[in-house]
Nucleic acid binder design. Structure first.
Lengths: 142, 142
DNA sequence: TATTGTTATACTCTATAACTATA
DNA sequence: TATAGTTATAGAGTATAACAATA
């Protein structure tokens, strides 16, 4: 058994290399961390979301959401209102500037991802998509 | 576009969840970091390797190799000799105890990985393996 | 008393630069 | 002078606990 034929190792290296190339785009362009990018992604595609909903829809816990949301607020990309129904809860909205940055950034991130994926054959891409979908289920449910 | 249908996000979440479950095994059992586990893996399967070879066969740089190797040495799992040809170079060997721990640990890590992979269909597993192989090439060469 | 969000703390990882010893 | 390995430092990411405000 060699390390580079050990499946878990190959998965980790492939995934990290892929992720790294995308991170470069939103970090270089707008100085967003991956957590900030994920929250902006969710908020740009929803009318409004609470902290609770953000933790449920990401792998982030409440501390990570709180900190990433603060930074996005500082940058003027989202707003953090206090809920009228329950004053403990925050309700987040994406600002017009947040939408603008997201709309600029998403195509660049997608282009970078497609640049890598398009160097693969259509069959390999289909296999990857199918395999990742199955793995996601297996690794988060098992 | 929703976050949970965005391929890069699904890949990252799946890969991290999978990796996390394996990390638990070698961290809980022997207190090894992922870097230490990878070096031990390489050294247990080779007669001897230099630092240079270790950096070439992993994603680790010389600083990471140096630190992980020191820790493995402290634990008595490897030895770090000075090369006779070039006294700047270190030559690493796996100790009998290192081999013993690796032989104990590898089946446990593999069982944990197989536990997840076996919950997938054979077709999904084949697709995952094929897709990851292609992605590894695409993400590290593109 | 329990929950939400925040702050505090410590620990690990990562990246880079500076240092040493050898060549 | 260049290279291998080490040490130092700062920054980012992760995990946990404690806290204030609200329910």
């Amino acid at each position: 058994m060699q390390l580079d034929s050990f499946f878990p190792y190959r998965l980790a290296v492939a995934s990290e290399a892929f992720s790294r190339k995308l991170t470069e785009v939103y970090q270089r362009e707008f100085g967003l961390s991956r957590e900030e990018w994920r929250l902006l992604f969710l908020l740009a595609n929803a009318k409004c979301l609470t902290s609770l909903e953000l933790t449920q829809r990401t792998t982030l816990d409440k501390v990570q959401v709180s900190r990433a949301a603060q930074k996005l607020d500082d940058k003027g990309l989202i707003t953090r209102a206090i809920s009228e129904e329950d004053r403990r809860i925050r309700v987040y909205h994406c600002t017009p500037e947040g939408h603008r940055q997201f709309e600029t950034l998403l195509p660049q991130v997608e282009a970078r991802a497609q640049g890598m994926l398009n160097s693969m054959s259509a069959e390999d891409r289909a296999a990857l998509d199918r395999g990742v979908t199955a793995l996601l289920k297996a690794a988060t449910e098992t």
